[in-house]
Design a protein around this nucleic acid. Structure first.
Lengths: 193, 193
DNA sequence: CAAAAATGCGACATAAATGTCTCAATAGTT
DNA sequence: AACTATTGAGACATTTATGTCGCATTTTTG
């Protein structure tokens, strides 16, 4: 990973963000489209990322970092299991775009190398949910695996909800309602919301 | 829509189902892959569907029918809004594959002609949710639009939950937990689950 | 069994995306 | 201003999916 000048670093970022946006919605989109979204010529694009797999690898790493960071920030060891879960989901919504990319784009390809780190964080989450089962804050009828999956489908819903077209929800409202629904659904009864 | 012999009809179905499976996971997959999944040669495939768009149109129509049928079967006018919502979600899970295809594959293309029918059913659903707000069975803090979106993200979660690998949930358990979570989350408090 | 229908195989031409390269122009630095 | 880094434009060969066809084979039907 050679160091880059400020200019180069900037366009690199630009391309990566464009990739997240474009490939997040349509993983098979032509690379030219990514370049265009980044405001960069096809030549320049390939100067930074030789081919599709190189690009995906780079975004993968970005997503990876974001993911680990988010889980760390959630301080999963503090408070009840449900509180930890709430913090986690709230924090993950801050990183919506990359995570959504992870769901849609990363899947349609070979297994990425960072599986280990992925599993690590997942273990932390599972532990928090488990704790929630034990401390009575999380519904025991719902399996750890399911509650874990729920995070992703909720992110999916928040991201793909039709944007503020007249009757639409603002992004903020969407997140708020998502959190409310999620926590109510997951909490042990009586609801501690 | 010319009539087909029983044999032809069978292979046609076969191709359509293969398309749902393959393109549901990866909308950009080669048509050859669809043909293979259907157990049919590439030649035969093109004999039934001239090109990609023809295939997508056909699956679209299939999904459309399934969707309308499901909404009808849910008898959205009966009982409280929440009860109607429960019936709807339960019924939609019966048609998981096509609906998931609709989410992932249909999106990445031109707007399909059947928009009208889509909106019709959606209006029915919105009405039921609205009724739930009024009869006190559905949480008034959650917007109709959000509750409507929730259906899809839940279907997404149920479909893409990692299949029964050791610790995994059975499809049945997944649906059960999904329903529980969803209804708890959407119900007005105190929960009527 | 004989006619008809459906299929598979393989060859082809075509289109689109990809990746590489060269060269001139532009932007940034000292 | 001179120099360097970064970029854009375009040409090019390559690959991959696509769609079409003719012909032989199998399957279904009557």
């Amino acid at each position: 990973m050679p160091e880059l000048s400020t200019t180069a670093e900037r366009t690199r970022r630009s391309i990566l963000m464009a990739a997240v946006e474009v490939l997040g919605v349509n993983p098979g989109a032509p690379l030219a489209e990514v370049a265009q979204r980044a405001g960069v010529s096809r030549s320049t694009f390939h100067r930074y990322f030789a081919d599709r797999s190189a690009l995906k690898a780079a975004v993968d790493e970005l997503a990876q970092q974001e993911w680990v960071q988010a889980v760390q920030n959630a301080r999963l060891d503090d408070g009840t299991g449900l509180e930890a879960y709430r913090r986690l989901c709230g924090r993950l919504m801050e990183s919506l775009p990359v995570l959504v990319w992870w769901m849609s784009a990363a899947g349609s390809g070979a297994a990425e190398a960072q599986e280990s780190s992925w599993d690590e964080q997942n273990a932390l989450i599972a532990a928090a949910i488990q704790r929630g089962h034990e401390d009575g804050s999380i519904d025991r009828a719902l399996s750890v695996e399911w509650i874990s999956s729920l995070i992703w489908s909720t992110l999916y819903a928040v991201h793909f909800i039709p944007p503020e077209s007249r009757t639409g929800l603002s992004p903020f409202e969407a997140r708020e309602q998502a959190m409310r629904t999620l926590l109510k659904g997951v909490a042990a009864e009586p609801p501690a919301v």
